[in-house]
Structure formats: C-alpha cells, structure tokens
Design a protein around this nucleic acid. Structure first.
Length: 832
RNA sequence: GCCCGGGUGGCGGAACGGCAGACGCGGCGGACUCAAAAUCCGCUGUCCGAAAGGGCGUGUGGGUUCGAAUCCCACCCCGGGCACCA
C-alpha cells in the first residue's frame, strides 16, 4: 500500500443521483405557475415530449426522448425562461386489455402498476417535470373531459355516425382508422385487414383538409413529416361532371346518371370507356341482363377480397374488370362509351367512378389494351415519344374546341365549358378520409351516447359525465369487449324521453385522448377541460419531441382538434397549430432491427443506471449520433462517457489529487490559453445546444477536459483561479446534460449552492479575441506552408508574408506567381 | 415509378466554399504496478520511403471556382415516405 496517497472522494453516481432527484422534487425546482410574471414578458417556454404509453420500466427509446426533453427544460430554465415541462400517460390501449383477456386481471390495476414503474424510470433518468399537471387518459377526470369535447364536436356537427366500408382488424377485434392501416395490414398487430360495411362513428376531419394542408407552411417541422402529411392529405384539383347512361347508339335511357372525377378534364375528348368501382351503387341498376351473371360474380369476388390483395397490382389485368353491357354519354362529344366495373377504381375516392382516357393515363391504357378498347390521343406527345400513355404537357389534339391549347389552358376551358353547360364544375378532391374514431374495445374512453328506441341516438347531458366502464367485467377469450354483455352498463335512460335506452358500447380511439392532452397540461382546471385564457399563456408548444412514426396519426389528429377547438371558441381563435417546433428523434435499433416495446427491455436502461449511473446513460445518448438519426445500440459508447464523467469528477471534486499543486499570482500564456478555451467553450456549447447538435457539444466537453488535464499536469502547473473558473464554467454548461454530477460537484465546490438555479454563462468577449491565427498557404489549392499572423492582417500583408515564406519561395523558383488570392483570417492561395 | 434523406479512416461521426478526419470507440506504444486491471501520457487515413519528404484520398463520372466533402449536372448504392387516388 502506498503511504501518502491523497484520498480522492469517489464518484458514486448511484448515491448522488437519487439524492438530487429528491431535492429537485422537494424544492419544486421545475414546477411553474400560470401566473409566473415571466409569462407576461413573453418568457414562457413550453417543452413537451409525447406522453408515453405506460409499458412498465422505460426502454431506450424513452431514455433518448426524455434526455433531449430534459436537457432542453434545464437549459431554457437556466436561460431565464419560465419553462413548462409536464408529463403524463397515454394509459388507454390494447396491451392492457390483451393482458386482461389472458390473465383475467382488470386493465386498471395492470395499467396503474405500469404507470408507477415508468414514472420511477423517468425519474431515475433524471427527468424533471411539473407533476402537478400530470394527466392519465384513463383517469375519470380526464375521461370526463374527453367525453365533454366529444359532445361539443357532436353538437357542432364534427362527429357523425355512418355506415361505410371500414377497415376491420381481426387481430385487434376492432375497426381501424385509415391511418392505422399500413399496406393493408393493421399497424399494431400486422394482421391483414378486412373491408366491412359497418355503422361507425367518425370525426369530420376532412372539413379541415385544406387548412391542415395550408397551415403546414406555418410550422417549423422536419420536412419529412410535413411531406408525409401533404401526401396523406393528397389534394388534387380537377373537375367533376355528370355522365348519363344510354344505349350503344347514344340514345338516353331514362335519367340514370353518375358523376366522375378527373384531374384531366382537358383530355375528356379521349374518353373511350368509363369505369365504376365494384361497390358503386349504380352497378346493379345499369348492368344488362346478358351481363348480369358475370358482373355479379366479379363484384362478389372483388368485395370479398382483402385490402392487401386488392392493393396488389399483380395478376393479369383482364381479370380485374368486367363489362356491364351499359353505355354512357361523353358530354363533350356526345359519344357513347361502354361502362366497365374494375377493381382498380376505388369507391372511397372521388365519386367512385372515372372516365377512362387511355391515351393519357397508363392504367387506362393497360385496361384498354387488355379489353381491346380504342385509344385516342388528345395531347400531342413530343417528337420521338415512344411510350404508351402520354401524361405530359403538349397541345390538345382531337379535342374539338380545346385543340391547340396547352394543358393549363385546356383544363380551364374544359371546366368553364362544363359549368356553362351545367353538367359539371371545378372540384378539389382530397385523399384524406374522415377519422373513424369508434373501437369495439373495452379499455378506452366510452362514447357518451345512448340509443333510444323512440328518440334514436341521444348524447348524454354533461352532468352525466363521465361515463365509466364497470369494474365487474369478464374478459372473453373471443376478444370481444365485455361491455357488450354487461347488463348494468348496457341499460340506460334516455335523457330526452326518460324511457329505457341502450348505452353505446364502443369506446374511442386512443388517439382521441392524445389529441388534446397538451392543452390540459397548460391548465388542468377542475371545472373545465382547460380555460382559453390559460391555454393562451402557454400554447402553442414551443418544442414538441417524439417519434416520426406518428407523422400522419397523432400529429394530424392533434392539429385537427386544435383547429376545431379554436373554431368552437374553447381555445383562442388564433391558435391554429398546437406544436410550433417539432423534433423527431431517431429510433434505437438492436442488431439492425427496430427496438419496439417488446425488444426494448433487452438492454434495460435501469441496469445501466444501477451501475454507471443516469448521467453516463444520458451523455452516451447525446454523444452517439446526431439526435434525429436512428441509433444502433452497439454504437452507444458508454465507456467513453463514463470515463469523461470520472475525469471531470477527479478534476473538480474538492480534495482531488489534481488540484493540490496549483499556483497563484501572475498569469502566463498557458493560463491565458485556458481562459480563452473556457470562454470559447461557452460559445460553442451554447451554439450546439441551440441547434440541437448535442453530439458535438459532448465532443467539446471532452476536448476541454483533455485541455484541462494537460494544463494541470504541465510543468508549470495550473493557476488556481484560472483552473477554478474553467471547471466552474464546465459544470454550469454540463448541468442540462448531466444534471446530477454537475449539481453535486457545484454544491461541493460552492457551499451547497444549486447549479440549476444559476444563470447560463455568457462569454467574456475580451477573452474571445485571438491575437494570433495560423494561416495555411496553398499552392494550387494544396497546403504547402503555414504562417502565424494577426487575425486582422489584410490581404496585401498576407500576400507579402506568404510570398516571403521559404517553402513558397523554393516552390516558385524565382518565377512570379500568376495569381495570388489572399483571404484575411482564412487562407492564401497561390497560382504559379 | 414519384418525393425526401444519406454515402467521409477499422467503426460512430466532425468540418454550413478556405488546414479533411474534431471528439469517441477500437488498435499500437510508454508511465505506474511484483503483476494485471484501473488510471495517466503519446501515436494511429492510405501508399512509397530507412528518414527527410512526397503521392493518393470524402460512392462514380463530369462541371463551376484561385480553391469543392461542401455548389451544379448525370449515374450507382443504402434508408425512409407515397404509390391502381383517376
């Protein structure tokens, strides 16, 4: 044993971390009130991480998410903002119900238990929140206000019940919204989805299609998410017009007609047939007797097809359609064109019927070729065009009064003609469908209506809210919701006639809960879901953080809710968008595969916190990659980050062996260099934090600590004041990223003071002025020499010095250079 | 097919027209140690060379520029989104 070793107090993250978590809670460091005076000065800042589904202990995805959010909360707080950083739980959903079906345990205790596990995890990561504002979707208080909002939307006509072909997920035993079906499969379970005609509840989100599209221009979101929403909304401009059914000689047959939608009204003269979707209501009426058997067989086959097969473009095209025997009049030229049914026409888009123009549409071309239908070009393709259908621009041909016009003009004129003739008009179509909100599940927010045999569908009055699911339920292995068989729940009284009524047993999509939780965080009021004037104090969310997988789900629905609530006057009219800035973090992958809820716990964050500590885990998350990129777990460098924190501890802790041999008095050049590096660090880290470049900020911490180590171990030793200033600045800058170690070291160095309540450091401008700068001298763009000069040396001076440099003189070999470009402070480039 | 990202050492990445490879991981060497670990210090793109030094280097090919990883054009590869939407 060495005899006189200095006993350095050890860095024990597992001891200091819980202590500081307790202190932040006890001192209410991160609670903020709505009457905070800074709000009036515009110094409010709302940072929000997407509230999690409570799946038990946190997985790495949570850690990554909350590390960014927490860093921002602490950083903005140190910058002097009143920061609102709330947390809650998206606590309705299928996993708890599936567990209930398996085990018989009611979803509520199951969920409550997992909420506490997750809350504990989040706390152990070091996340700080104003827990007074916590929301939980399954809390009766929250249910009450979700139902209240539903009823207000119902009154406003934004909710309706309709029979429609909807997506049925056999795996989840419920219907699904379009957004929850990916490639014909349920996005949750992956099971292929069936189409069924069912009566369901819808939100009229399509009323807001144009606004949802337009207002994307006003938010600061990743382009990728904006593009996805644009595609999803899918606006297309064109015309809709009426086609009358006739016989093959163009003689009208009664007044049967149907509407078609097209984006290319300019090509209407090229229509050689038209097509109805198999589900189109007119199919049965117009089919001729000789075609009936074939058409009925075709329609039946198409309807029984699953979405996933229907989407497939495989298979011979001549099996995908069928002639009805009927004809329709092309209003443009009075020609009779045959009417087909084909499965490539979708009943859910446009009018469910199209005019087919094979000359300018490849699908129509393929169909026409297979069925031996005529093809007429109505747009002149360019010289040398060798393709089939030509969809590009060009002068109209074979098109009567449109001949010679280019596409835009021809479209305009065709629409004008339709309108004057009274057979059609300009029309904008959206791909976006209304949001199917009802689910045949138990563990969700009940829909607060009853069915009265006399009065029909009746909404419940507000004073009967919340409608809560009963506790004494039996989960069936069939997967059916127990609400459907619970007599006590089913029996209700009609609020209008007082007679017996049946309660709605469907619950709401859990995306309804998440469409307004951010408003309740701003004002968790007792007498209302939130108050407009209080919401105005915080909304919109300044920085929203979460996964990009919600691009067309939660992020679209929440935008719709915000707009609708604003229009109904429950939040400020001007609040058009809920999330001003959005940051979508990358996913964590394990062996190249997505780390989902099921795989996430393979690397348990808790076990890392138990050993290396939360600060190391946070730092490693920050350091590994740019925040928006996906991360392979194997790339996360825990060792390097743990090493850095131990190095910082050893340098900064009072009583360390590294701080025993300092000097005082006059400062040397080496001291000045450290002072400058310290001020430079403030500028660099602040800049990196502002632009979310956390991995480079960590690199700068590391480089600075390396500098300090070299400094304290150098021959002349460290100047005590310079060193102390360097370390103190480092700790303040580190406080948002690694809050526990920064707080502990600061408290030990400064008599128990609290680093997180300090102001963010500002650099000493005088120290940022550099007296010398090294300038590379290039010859033809290649560096051949370096000179050290004053940073403000002008071009002439630089050129003179460069040309006098021995290496350059040798290279030029007495010949005068052709050209010399001198960029002050940057470089000199010589062309010999 | 269309629309976004992205291709840089052994690996993750840095460099927002001006010194390519910051910082970390890994590797190599040294100090400390009886020894190992930990720790501390140094080296580490590649090829030629004993060295001094030099050549080559940011997916490929062209271009703009005094100067390009960075800007432009074409192509190849990887990731994501949309895709029978009329």
């Amino acid at each position: 044993m060495p005899e006189h070793t200095v006993e350095v107090p050890p860095y024990l993250p597992t001891e200091i971390e819980p202590a500081w978590q307790q202190r932040w809670r006890d001192e209410r460091t991160y609670e903020v009130d709505n009457d905070d005076p800074r709000l009036a000065e515009g110094r409010g800042y709302y940072v929000l991480c997407m509230y999690p589904y409570p799946s038990g202990a946190a997985h790495m995805g949570h850690v990554r998410n909350y590390t960014f959010g927490d860093l921002l909360t602490r950083y903005r707080t140190m910058r002097g903002d009143a920061v609102l950083s709330p947390m809650g739980f998206d606590s309705f959903g299928l996993p708890a119900e599936n567990a209930a079906i398996k085990t018989g345990i009611h979803p509520r205790p199951f969920t409550d238990e997992r909420i506490e596990e997750l809350r504990s995890s989040i706390t152990r990561i070091g996340g700080v929140y104003d827990w007074r504002r916590e929301v939980r979707s399954h809390d009766p208080v929250y249910i009450r206000w979700t139902q209240w909002i539903f009823l207000r939307f119902l009154e406003a006509g934004l909710v309706y019940r309709a029979n429609a072909p909807v997506n049925w997920g056999p795996g989840c035993q419920t219907v699904l919204a379009n957004e929850q079906v990916v490639d014909g499969r349920c996005e949750r379970s992956g099971d292929p989805v069936d189409k069924r005609d069912l009566e369901q509840w819808f939100f009229r989100i399509t009323d807001y299609a144009q606004q949802l599209l337009d207002d994307l221009a006003t938010v600061d979101w990743p382009e990728r998410v904006v593009t996805q929403q644009r595609n999803w909304i899918g606006r297309s401009e064109g015309a809709e017009f009426r086609m009358s059914v006739c016989d093959s000689d163009a003689n009208p047959l009664g007044d049967t007609s149907f509407e078609v939608f097209t984006t290319r009204p300019d090509t209407s003269f090229g229509m050689t047939f038209c097509v109805l979707a198999p589900e189109h209501p007119l199919v049965t009426d117009i089919t001729t007797d000789d075609r009936r058997a074939e058409v009925e067989a075709f329609v039946a086959a198409a309807r029984s097809m699953r979405e996933i097969d229907r989407l497939s473009t495989e298979g011979p095209i001549d099996k995908r359609g069928c002639f009805t025997g009927a004809y329709a009049l092309n209003p443009f030229n009075g020609a009779a064109v045959p009417i087909y049914v084909a499965d490539y026409v979708l009943v859910t888009y446009g009018t469910g019927a199209i005019m087919a123009v094979p000359g300018e549409d490849q699908r129509d071309w393929d169909f026409a070729t297979a069925y031996d239908l005529p093809i007429i070009r109505t747009v002149q393709p360019p010289e040398g065009f060798s393709g089939e259908a030509y969809a590009g621009d060009g002068p109209s041909i074979n098109s009567g009064f449109l001949d010679g016009l280019k596409m835009v003009d021809a479209k305009a004129k065709a629409i004008e003609w339709l309108e004057t003739e009274g057979v059609g008009q300009r029309r904008v179509n959206f791909r976006l469908r209304d949001w199917l909100l009802s689910r045949q599940r138990f563990w969700g927010c009940p829909i607060p209506v009853v069915y009265c045999p006399d009065c029909g569908i009746r909404p419940l009055p507000d004073d009967q809210l919340p409608v809560l699911a009963p506790d004494d339920v039996e989960f069936r292995p069939t997967g059916e919701s127990p609400l459907r068989y619970h007599e006590g729940f089913l029996h209700a009284t009609c609020p209008d006639c007082g007679g017996p009524a049946t309660r709605e047993t469907d619950t709401m999509d859990t995306f309804v809960d998440s469409s307004w939780y951010f408003l309740r965080f701003a004002d968790p009021d007792e007498l209302s879901p939130f108050r407009s004037d209080q919401v105005a104090k915080w909304m919109p969310v300044d920085q929203y953080i979460g996964g990009a997988e919600h691009a067309v789900l939660h992020l679209m629905y929440a935008r719709f809710f915000t707009k609708a609530l604003a229009d109904l006057g429950y939040v400020p009219k001007g609040l058009r968008e809920p999330f001003q800035r959005l940051f979508t973090q990358g996913m964590i992958r394990l062996d190249g595969s997505k780390m989902s809820k099921s795989k996430g716990n393979l690397i348990a964050p808790e076990s890392i916190i138990d050993t290396l500590g939360a600060d190391t885990l946070r730092l490693a998350q920050l350091q590994v990659k740019p925040p928006e990129e996906d991360v392979d777990w194997e790339d996360v460098g825990l060792e390097g980050c743990s090493r850095l924190l131990h190095r910082i501890w050893r340098l900064a802790v009072p009583g360390s062996d590294l701080s025993t041999t300092t000097r005082s008095g006059e400062e040397s050049d080496a001291d000045l260099a450290i002072r400058q590096a310290t001020e430079r660090l403030i500028v660099d880290v602040t800049g990196d934090f502002e632009r979310w470049s956390y991995h480079t900020a960590v690199a700068k911490f590391m480089a600075f600590v390396n500098d300090l180590y070299r400094y304290v171990q150098s021959g002349s030793g460290a100047h005590s004041e310079v060193l102390a200033a360097g370390i103190d600045t480092l700790l303040r800058l580190l406080a948002p990223a690694c809050p526990h170690i920064a707080a502990e070291l600061w408290a030990r160095r400064h008599d128990g003071q609290h680093v997180h309540t300090l102001e963010w450091p500002t650099p000493d401008e005088a120290m940022l002025i550099v007296e010398k700068v090294e300038i590379p001298i290039q010859v033809k763009g290649k560096v051949k020499a370096r000179i050290t000069v004053a940073p403000d040396l002008d071009a002439e001076g630089l050129e003179a010095l460069a040309l006098a440099e021995p290496a350059i003189v040798a290279l030029l070999d007495g010949r005068p250079p052709k050209k010399v470009i001198a960029v002050p402070g940057k470089t000199v480039n010589i062309v010999p």
